[in-house]
Design a protein around this nucleic acid. Structure first.
Lengths: 145, 145
DNA sequence: ACAATTAAAGAGTTTTATATCTTTAATAAA
DNA sequence: TTTATTAAAGATATAAAACTCTTTAATTGT
């Protein structure tokens, strides 16, 4: 596995996909999303239900229903998605999994690893979904499988 | 989970523990190691068997047997341990799990994430087990649970 | 040769992550 | 009010990770 769980990868891809596909009040269905980001539809549905319950994205049932994101949703940092799925360990945990690892009692990787974790936090926590999406809309970045 | 799998965390802790405990031809048993790093003994045994088969650490059976590391083992980068257990995805994979993500077809996180991955690679790949161990021996760092 | 000690190997079990399938509830449009 | 459409929810199923237990093999010292 990479840095994030597969579930979290799906979640982030789906969020970017929804952001990208639903300008101005439109919605996108689970089928389109799962095909668009190459993930199992039913599994992704569970993930999006979860994000929806937490208010990270929105959904509507019925004809022309689907998933969408409000301006408020778009202005959230990507870390909201990551923390909802993978928790905060990735931003806070010791590289060796030691509970007592701290500034005063550092593990052999502590200081250097902390710098890396901080950079990751800055990226994921400090950048809004909207701004990642702008690069997508500009064609500067891509979600191609 | 943090950045590394739990199995990988055990492996790294065990390697540091062995390095720390076996100066000059001594050996340390699985019981001592598993207690010292707070991991399940039988499970750790499997992990160390694996590392041993790959030549990352060494072992000897029988009375006064146990695990130890040669000078050559100590001079290896920590990445040998990580790659043996978790593979190379952590150093190479796309943050969103996209197969086609590349410089020419970057995902929304690509460039910033690449910088972070490179820093991680530099740390894990560019530092020998021995040099991490020196900080341990000097009491500058700790493996306390 | 024998007994004791230690890791290696084999064969599970349990837990968590990932994935699928079916049924229900909400909504919109005819 | 009926039908079609969509997400939500519930119930499993499968696979992978984490963990345990038992037996075997190698080595040492007596």
């Amino acid at each position: 596995m990479g840095v994030f769980s597969r579930t979290c990868e799906y979640a982030m891809r789906a969020v970017f996909f929804i952001a990208h596909r639903t300008p101005e009040g439109t919605r996108v269905g689970i089928k389109d999303i799962s095909e668009g980001i190459d993930s199992p539809a039913h599994f992704l549905a569970k993930i999006l239900q979860d994000l929806s319950r937490r208010g990270i994205i929105h959904s509507a049932k019925g004809p022309n229903g689907g998933f969408y994101m409000t301006e408020e949703d778009l202005s959230r940092p990507l870390s909201d998605v990551v923390e909802a799925i993978d928790g905060v360990q990735i931003f806070k945990g010791c590289a060796l999994g030691l509970k007592q690892c701290s500034e005063k009692n550092p593990c052999p990787l502590h200081h250097e690893f902390k710098a890396i974790r901080n950079d990751l936090t800055k990226l994921i926590n400090g950048t809004s979904i909207k701004s990642f999406n702008e690069d997508l809309l500009n064609g500067m970045t891509s979600l191609k499988k």
